[in-house]
Design a binder for these strands. Structure first.
Lengths: 211, 211
DNA sequence: GCCGTACCGTACCGTACGGTTCGGCTCATA
DNA sequence: TATGAGCCGAACCGTACGGTACGGTACGGC
C-alpha cells in the first residue's frame, strides 16, 4: 500500500491554462458533451492547436486533471507545538478542506470522468486522480497523525489504518452520493459541523487520555 | 433525507434474465464497449428483440441495474432477543455483506456506468443505484440500530446519522478506490477483519455501557 | 518588404454506435 | 398443411465525434 507520489509535470502556459479551464468549465456544466469541438469553441482555439498541445483527447483530459490537482494543494500543517487543542483544530481544518473539495462541482465532474474511463483499460486518469486525491491527502495527514502520537495525544499502531478511519468518518456517504447525482445541500456551515463531529469521533477512537 | 423506496418492477422472463446477465458480464469484462451490438451478440439475440423488450439502451441499462439489485437483497435481520453479542454479530454480518457487495466486480461496473451518466441529465441510473444501494442498506440497517437502542445497547439521537457513521467506518476509502481502478486485494478474510474492526469502532462510539 | 511560426476557423474523413428494417427460420395452433 | 407470432441475423441509416488538412491572419526576425 505504498503512496504514489503526486505526479508533477511541466506547468502549462497561460494560454494553455485557459484551455484547461475551459475543459473544467465544460465538465461541470455538461459533463457528457465534452467533445473536442466544444472545447475548441469554448476556449476560442482551433482543434489543431488542441491536438498539437495535448496530443489527443486523453492527453487533454490528463492535463486537465493535473491542472486542477495543482491548485487544490491546500496549506500545509506544520507540526508546531502540539497540544490537544491545536491537533483537533488542525484535524478540523483538514476535514473541512477535504469535504469542500469532494463536494465541489469541479471535483465531482473530474471524478466522474476518471471513474468512467477507469472501466476502459486505456489511459489512467483514475490513478492520477487517486494519486492527487486520496493518496495525496493521506501523505499530508499522516505526518500530523504521527506528530500527534509522538506528543502522546493519539494512540495507534499503523498511521495508514488510522488515516483510513479518519477518511471514512469524514467522508461517510458524501462522495458516492454526489457522484451518483444525489443533490445534497451541503453549505459551509454544514461542512464545518460535519468536520467537527468527525474529528470528535476520531479522537474518541484514537485519542490518548491526557493524564 | 427521505429514503427512496427501492423501485420494484415486473420481473423479467428467464430469457430476458439471460440477456441482462449478458449485459452484466459485458459490463464487468469491458465496461467501455457496452454497445447494443455487443449485447445482442453475447446474448445470441437480435437487436430488434432488445429494442422490443427494453425500448432503448437506457431501458436496457435500467433493467440491468434493477435485475442486479433484485438479487443482492441479502437476508433480513430480525430483531430477535437482542443482547450485545447478537447485535454486534448482526452488525458484523451487515458490514461483511456490504463490503462484499461494493467490492464485487458487478457492483463496481454498475456503479461506474451509473456515475458516468449521472453527469448527463438524461436517465436516472444514478438514483436507481442509490435507491437500491446506499438507501436500501440504510432502510434495512436502521431498524436494527433502533432495536439496539430500544434494548439499551446503543445510544444515539438520529438513526440516520448513526447509520452514516456506520457506513463511513465500514466503507472508508474502499469504494472510491475501487471505482477509480485501484487494485485492492480484498479477500474474504480481509473483509471479515475490516468488518469486525468497523463494528468494534462503531460500538465504541455508540455503544451504551452495560451496567 | 519577406519569410517562418503560431494560431484560428472550418471543412472534411473515417468510424463507431444507436436505432430501424427486412428476410428467413421455428414452432404452436388449427 | 397453411398461418401467423416470435425471434434471429444481417444489412442499413443517420449522426456524433475523434482526428486531420487547409486556407487565412497576425507577428517577430532578418
Amino acid at each position: 500500500m505504498e503512496s504514489s507520489p503526486a505526479i508533477e509535470t511541466t506547468t502549462p502556459s497561460a494560454r494553455q491554462q485557459a484551455v484547461l479551464d475551459a475543459v473544467l468549465g465544460l465538465m461541470v456544466e455538461a459533463g457528457d458533451q465534452l467533445t473536442m469541438d466544444a472545447v475548441a469553441r469554448r476556449a476560442s482555439c482551433s482543434k489543431e492547436t488542441l491536438y498539437k498541445w495535448f496530443r489527443d483527447r486523453d492527453g487533454l483530459l490528463t492535463a486537465t486533471v493535473q491542472w486542477q490537482a495543482s491548485r487544490v494543494r491546500a496549506g500545509r500543517y506544520e507540526a508546531r507545538a502540539l497540544d490537544v487543542a491545536t491537533l483537533s483544530e488542525s484535524l478540523r481544518d483538514f476535514a473541512t478542506t477535504w469535504l469542500e473539495v469532494i463536494s465541489s462541482s469541479a471535483s465531482i465532474a473530474l471524478n466522474r470522468i476518471a471513474i468512467g474511463d477507469a472501466g476502459s483499460r486505456k489511459s489512467n486518469l483514475g490513478s492520477i486522480v487517486l494519486a492527487n486525491g486520496r493518496f495525496a491527502i493521506g501523505d499530508r495527514l499522516k505526518p500530523l497523525l504521527e506528530a500527534g502520537r509522538a506528543a502522546g495525544l493519539l494512540a495507534f499502531d499503523d498511521s495508514e489504518t488510522a488515516f483510513r478511519t479518519f477518511f471514512g468518518l469524514v467522508g461517510r456517504d458524501v462522495q458516492i452520493r454526489l457522484l451518483l447525482g444525489d443533490a445534497i445541500d451541503f453549505d459551509a456551515a454544514e461542512i464545518r459541523r460535519d468536520a467537527a463531529s468527525a474529528v470528535e469521533q476520531f479522537l474518541a477512537l484514537y485519542g490518548q487520555p491526557q493524564s
